[in-house]
Design a protein around this nucleic acid. Structure first.
Lengths: 193, 193, 193, 193
DNA sequence: ACATAACCGAGACGGTACGTCAGGTCTTGAC
DNA sequence: GTCAAGACCTGACGTACCGTCTCGGTTATGT
């Protein structure tokens, strides 16, 4: 498609950044409930109409703010063995639970994804990016013969992320990076040849 | 403060039931977004002030409506072996995914639990009731020597419910009761002696 | 549930009055442009939603505020003769021009009546009430034989109010109560037997 | 509209005309409310910034559009006598009322003149041009001895235009060219020697 | 048996946030 | 050096629900 820009003032990077920063700050400082379009506009100095020009809805703005300002890249570990890799990955993921700000942010995004059907795809896209890391990890394990070839990779990935989200959302038990090796072992125990 | 009841009209069971029924209907028919106090009042004919007299907030009303009108008892299976029990339980749980109404309801409740800190306890209480079934199941397995005694039961339960919720919330893959035996095997594979 | 009933908290006279007072004040102090629903809400302490409950639109609120708080009753003069009556009436009407606040108010209302078709009827109703005074005056003159019976009363009334509004709106010339007798004479000159 | 032809871009009369035409069309077709700068820009293809370069505000643009595109020259009648002249003039003026488009336009301009103090002068200038016709007419009558020399010409002109505007704005009665002679007689009745 | 007080409906109230729209200013790039 | 395109802030609009608060009327006790 032609991106026929035939003139016009160019988009202000300052406004764009300020909006994302304000959204990210509100998300972390006060939780998702405090993230309103009006609050983002007030805090960033960007007009509401400008926000609506660039983001179709609040959750899309917040999702972008989260991925750009809050989420850190989770490195793809490579310890030589699948159990070590998984333990390292889980430990890194569990560490998030130590930062209440980020927990609030994640929970709010998950909630919004449930309440706003139009937001779910954007959220899922991000989730899928994270899943891909684990998929690659497990397939490496299969290739190395550490795991059975018939393993249900989708369910295996769910065994990695499912408990994480479940604890995050229900808060019935803490997430401790120290538990990562045991959890990794429990997950892989059923997947070996 | 004396709370001497010296007479007075008694609580109307009709209003109570009508409110719960309206909330449940709205929850299933149109999803959580459509469940507003005003809609419940309008549909049930129960006044807003009466709703607020008996429930402190919308989510508490809806949670009660869900457990009383929507959720069916999940029978505690007993097939003689832990893997059979777990497979039967998972199959029953996964069946929920075949009813979009109930899926919408569950997702909405989970979302509200994230956004409203005062609701989380009520939601968690319900969740804990469901967890207890699996806890009992696994402990029976340990007692019978099918599982190692040192098993991290909490994490094991998370391996059961985590993937369920994760798929429900993210919708990256369907939940099929036919997968239950394989999933049960994968979960228990790492917990055996 | 049961049949239709009529309960409910009664309308707050304080809010009602406060809204009208705020609207009238804004109208006089700063002119019609400053009269916004938001400003009325802010100044009166009455919620916007309450304003919209009681008045369908801003102009209707302002019209009510004007008639109740600003407009003074123009006494129906009775000097015994139609020319004296008319001169007295015109003098009183022209006096309005000496109060810039009220001029601003009148002009704003007239303008809004042009721009908002739904407001015109409310405005016209008020205008008609004022016309009736002059109609009665002229008919008394006809009854007394001071004016010809075939006089076009409608146009005669227009000769009274038309120049008033015209000067008010266009501001090409001042309105001076001292001119009233001469104007009365000019108007009646063409209406006599 | 088309753009520049030769090198070294010059000011575009096409844009100018297109803007006026769009404003006039909108004014007549949909009334003053529909005449927005955005609508004029969209319909004419002239950029908002270009509009603001040539006219300081919307009403000034619209006023120019009205006088150039909508208003027809009202011929200065000369029947030999002031009453005939006035009757002819009034008939022509009243005929405007038969064209709803032009009525809408006039009412909108009058309204805007009230709400926007910066526009009033431009509007008054146009009004004064029309007044001058009647002034000349009456002064001819005085010179011919048909009217008293002491006549208050300003008020006399108001007796001509006042009722016209008053009926246009309030719409309490129709304006019919057939009434022109009677109205002329009523107006002049009080001004004769 | 009847007074008392809690119950219930209706709905008005002060609020918060929504998403939209037009105004008027400013910036960029094409011609 | 004009002009289109259009980004930008401002400010008001009217709507939807929220949770609280009267009202007037109703009904089941406890004395």
């Amino acid at each position: 498609m032609s991106t026929a820009r035939r003139g016009g003032r160019t988009r202000s990077p300052e406004s764009h950044e300020a909006a994302l920063a304000a959204a990210a700050d509100l998300l972390e400082e006060q939780g998702y409930r405090a993230v309103t379009i009006e609050a983002i506009a007030a805090r960033s100095g960007v007009a509401k109409s400008t926000l609506y020009r660039w983001w179709r809805s609040k959750p899309e703005l917040v999702m972008e703010a989260y991925t750009r300002k809050v989420a850190e890249r989770v490195a793809e570990p490579d310890t030589g063995g699948v159990e070590g890799d998984l333990a390292a990955f889980l430990a890194e993921v569990y560490r998030i639970a130590g930062y209440p700000d980020r927990v609030r942010a994640l929970r709010g995004l998950m909630a919004e994804a449930q309440l706003d059907p139009e937001f779910l795809p954007a959220f899922r896209e991000w989730v899928d990016g994270r899943r891909a890391i684990v998929v690659a990890m497990l397939e490496r394990g299969i290739a190395r013969g550490e795991l059975r070839a018939e393993v249900d990779v989708e369910h295996a990935v769910d065994l990695v992320f499912g408990p994480f989200w479940y604890r995050l959302l229900v808060e019935h038990a803490p997430l401790d990076p120290a538990d990562a090796p045991r959890h990794a072992a429990a997950i892989l125990g059923g997947l070996r040849g």
